[in-house]
Structure formats: C-alpha cells, structure tokens
Nucleic acid binder design. Structure first.
Lengths: 207, 207
DNA sequence: GGACCACTGTAACGCCGTTAGATAGACTGA
DNA sequence: TCAGTCTATCTAACGGCGTTACAGTGGTCC
C-alpha cells in the first residue's frame, strides 16, 4: 500500500478519535453545563486526559470545536431563511429562529455567550449577522427606523433575543407567557420600524 | 456588668466578624466573579475556612447575604421612583434604573441572575416587581396594551432589560451604540403600549 | 538498524469547596 | 471554685477539578 494511503488512513483514524471525544463531550453537555468536566469525559470516552490534551488545546478549545459545529448549523438555518419582500417579516423570522435555537440548546448557548468576553462568535453566526446588517441599512435608507441611530436598532433586537433566551435558561421554573417570544419580538419591531411610506406603486402580497 | 450587656457585646462582635468577611468578599468580587474563591477570601480576610463556614452556611450562602444587601439598595431606589401621571414614563424610568444598576454592578448581577435557576430573587427586588405589576394591570384595563396577553407585555420589557445588561457584561469589547439603552427601551414601550385614548377630558402636563 | 514522530498512559501539581476533630476561652449553674 | 457547656477558631485532611512532565509504544522514513 502506498505512503499516501497510509497517511490518509492515519488522518482518518485521527479524525475518528476526535469524533469519539467530541461525541462524548456532546453527550455529557446535554446532561447540563455543570455535568461536564475533563475527568468525567475521561471516564466516559475511554481515553485518558493527556490523549484529550493531545487532540485539543484544552477544555476551552475542545468546547470551541464542538460549539463551532453546532452553531454553524444555526448559521446555515438562518442563512436559508428567504429574505422575501418584507424586511420586517424577515427580521421576525430570523429573530424567532435564533431564540428557538437558543432555547432548544441551552447548554451550548450558555457556553457560547456566557463565557469569556474575548470569545469570538463562530464564523457562520457572524456571517448571519452581516447578512442582517444589509436589512437594517435598507430600512435606514428608506427612513423607516424610529431610532436616531441605525446601530441601536439592530442591537435592540439582538439584546431582546439574548434576554429572551437567557431568561428562559436561568429561570426555567418561571411561568413565562406562552406568547412571550412572538409578542415581544413583534412589539420590538413595531417600536423600532415605521410602516412603509404609503406612496409605493405596487401592492404587496401578504407575506 | 449585666448578663444582657455581655450577650449584646457578643452579638456585636459576631456581627463585626461577619461584616469583615462580607467586606472582603465584596472587594474580591469587584475584581471579577472569577477572582472570588473561599481560599482567596481566607487569605484576604485573615480568618480560616472553618471560621467562614461557622458564620455562613457555604459559599452560596455567603454570596446570598452579600447580594441581598446590595440588591435591596436597588429595590429601594426603584421603589423611590415617583409614579407620576404617565405610566409609560414610569416604566421607562424603572427599566432605565434597573439596567444601569446591572451594568454598574456586573459581578453582583451575574451572581444573582446567572446562578442556579432555583435561586429566588431577594425580597426587595420582588417587591419592586409587584409594584410594577399594578402599572401593567392599569394599562391593560385601559385597553392600551397591544399584546394579546398582559403577562407577555411585562415579561417583554423585563427580557429586554436582562438582555441589555447581559450583553454589556459578556461583550464589553463590542461597540454598543451610545443610545442603545434608551432607544431600545423606548422602542419596546412604543411597541407594547398604545397612546392613551383621545377622549380624556382633562389635559395633561407634559411630564 | 536507528532516528523520528504521533499517540497513549502513569503519576503528579496546584487549584477548588468543604469538613472532621482538636483547642482555647468565655459563660453558667452547683 | 470548679465542672460542664457553648462559641469561635484552628490544623489538617478529603475528594474533586484542569493541566502537564515524563515515559513508553508502535509505526514511518532514511
């Protein structure tokens, strides 16, 4: 067998070991952020600590890899939302997707957004953010933003989403209103964005 | 000297020791949530670990005591805000006070709202919440809430405040809009609450 | 065969929260 | 006054954590 195939096989083996470690990490994480520790991971995945440190920089690095994987799925999902005619319903859909994701993946969300401040968001999430940016610019140019500052409009919606998720995560017991997520996002959008000027020629389909 | 006075003196001594421990805790906490540990507190305050555990149940209990003190100040501040004529500007003032407090006391805020979900908020904060409740009821009865659910209106504003603070805490580096806090609270209130019905007899002073 | 390299293991280090048990001193009642 | 009790404090340890120095092992390459 050729040297190239040997190398190939080694790479595969390596990837497979890392996969095993990552999967065990994932499993452990699903039992709660606090359930995860390197020692427990060691018990669970069959490898010893130095092996894990051989494949990943440290605990942080291991979790980063996992989060990148998971959040890139969110990024894809958001990027696949059709932009359509109406920027407001587009923003609504994105915000809803984001909040639902955060609530469904509380442990991952916490790790990503509640850890060290110098932690950069994964590229796919950042890409989604950039994509949103253009929508806000569009609304600003159309004179539809009620805030004096374009930045503050985007950040307002983001802050609300973060608050919704983080409230749900940290106070699971509280009796949150069933319609809270939709209601609050709608209210925020109403408050931020004025309806389009009346004098547009063509009629819009109700999206 | 009387037995009563002896007891009194002992109580004072006890209170003073606890004060010392709490103050050292506070100092340590101001250096960051992560800077705080019982071992470091022990180095700092001159007492040994068992002494601390003699006066406080455990780490959690110690922090609880400190947070109760600190947050009761917030509760007082909020309860002192004049309710005035206009419920909207009252809600605005309360929300602003809350957010500013959170941003100014990030470590305390984190400890209180980001710890175990079963953690109850201190009584003074809860009192403030109850006081707010009446304002929402009033608005609801006047038919001014745009949400289908009274609960969701209150929770929307709260979620936003939480998001604003927690965003600031976890992404200090990000370039937050200077007007974000006011802008977003105003937007949320605009989106949640309709202007009062026109057919009121008396004119209002512009508050 | 020998040098190199990726991989994995043993055993330890220095943190952490917490506690069992001893000691000292002050108060209490006979 | 003296034994008994209670409070406050200490020394020393336990079990957990993330991490790493170091050794061994088994392949790959010259």
């Amino acid at each position: 067998m050729s040297a190239a195939s040997q190398q190939e096989r080694r790479r595969e083996k390596r990837a497979q070991v890392q996969r095993t470690i990552l999967d065990a990490t994932e499993t452990l994480l699903l039992e709660g952020v606090d359930s995860f520790s390197i020692r427990r991971l060691v018990e669970r995945c069959g490898y010893t600590a130095p092996t894990i440190y051989h494949h990943f920089k440290d605990k942080e690095g291991l979790l980063d890899t996992l989060l990148d994987e998971r959040f890139s799925r969110l990024g894809d999902k958001i990027r696949r939302i059709p932009q359509g005619d109406d920027p407001v319903s587009y923003l609504r859909a994105v915000a809803l997707a984001f909040v639902r994701f955060g609530i469904r993946n509380p442990n991952h969300y916490q790790l990503l957004f509640v850890r060290d401040p110098d932690q950069a968001p994964p590229p796919t999430v950042d890409a989604a953010r950039v994509q949103l940016e253009t929508v806000w610019v569009e609304l600003w140019d159309a004179g539809r933003l009620r805030t004096g500052d374009r930045e503050s409009a985007a950040q307002s919606l983001w802050s609300l989403c973060h608050g919704l998720i983080s409230g749900r995560i940290h106070r699971q017991d509280a009796d949150w209103s069933k319609t809270l997520i939709e209601d609050s996002i709608d209210a925020m959008l109403r408050g931020l964005i004025a309806p389009p000027a009346k004098r547009t020629r063509r009629r819009k389909k109700d999206a």
